[in-house]
């Protein structure tokens, strides 16, 4: 491949960068709050809820994300088809029938659902570890000072948890940058998909190399951002 070819490949991949970034940001946007909710459900004193949450985490972490993407993406169209075959009716199937499974919006939604559900399970475990790492003495000191449970959590515990979960969270976010490439499996327009296509067009692995550079630079930025965040919390130990 000539230098011009590589420049051309870079230009084309740049057009697919927004697809990767969109998936990345939307996954973070939904999975972090969802992770907080899952942590909370897992710590619920009503045992059946805690058990169900455990099962959810077990499935999400125990099966490949690629499988989950495929499952979510094909689940609705398959349900619709089988419903039509068996003649099932009802509001649920009406709703399913209205989903346009061929639109690019549907594909993106399915991806974000799969990614968010998967990453929420990981984030939940990170947050739980963070909460449980806070010494008992902090709760006792807050209790002796008359702080309510809510005040204790939001004013004393949470700020310390945030600091403690940053390193593990940065790990997870770095993996997410690379995991966006799994969206290739349902032909979502992102960097990896295009790089693979161009690899065939040019009969060269150079496009893969360029794609690798894209991920590398993205993760360099993510790493740098987390260095800054960690620095921001360095005012105490």
């Amino acid at each position: 491949m000539s230098f011009d070819d590589i420049l051309n490949v870079t230009k084309i991949l740049l057009e697919y960068l927004p697809g990767t970034l969109k998936l990345f940001f939307f996954t973070l946007l939904f999975s972090i709050p969802l992770g907080v909710i899952v942590t909370w459900l897992k710590k619920c004193r009503f045992k059946p809820i805690s058990w169900l949450t455990n099962l959810y985490i077990l499935i999400m972490r125990g099966t490949p994300l690629m499988l989950q993407i495929v499952a979510v993406y094909y689940a609705i169209p398959m349900l619709v088809t089988s419903a039509k075959k068996s003649g099932s009716e009802g509001w649920f199937y009406d709703l399913l029938g209205k989903v346009d499974t061929r639109s690019s919006n549907y594909m993106f939604t399915a991806l974000v659902v799969a990614f968010a559900l998967n990453y929420a399970a990981y984030f939940a475990e990170i947050f739980r570890g963070g909460i449980e790492s806070i010494p008992k003495g902090q709760y006792e000191a807050a209790e002796m000072l008359g702080l309510t449970k809510m005040q204790t959590f939001f004013r004393i515990i949470l700020p310390q948890v945030v600091k403690r979960v940053i390193p593990a969270t940065s790990n997870e976010v770095i993996v997410l940058v690379k995991d966006t490439s799994l969206a290739t499996v349902i032909a979502y327009a992102e960097i990896m998909l295009k790089a693979k296509q161009m690899m065939n067009t040019y009969s060269s692995i150079a496009p893969l190399f360029v794609a690798g550079l894209f991920y590398f630079v993205l993760n360099a930025i993510v790493t740098f951002a987390f260095v800054l965040i960690e620095k921001h919390y360095n005012y105490y130990r």
């Binding site: 010494p135 003495g137 902090q138 006792e140 000191a141 002796m144 000072l145 008359g146 702080l147 005040q151 004013r155 004393i156 700020p159 310390q160 600091k163 105490y236 130990r237």
Partner: peptide, 28 residues
């Protein structure tokens, strides 16, 4: 009506000395 001083202090590490002391007077 009672105060307790712990063996290992249990100060709030993310708060300054002043913030540690005024936390309860202000919020409780």
């Amino acid at each position: 009506k009672i105060g307790l001083v712990f063996q290992n202090f249990n100060l709030f590490p993310h708060m300054s000395v002043m913030e540690n002391i005024i936390e309860a007077p202000v919020h409780v």
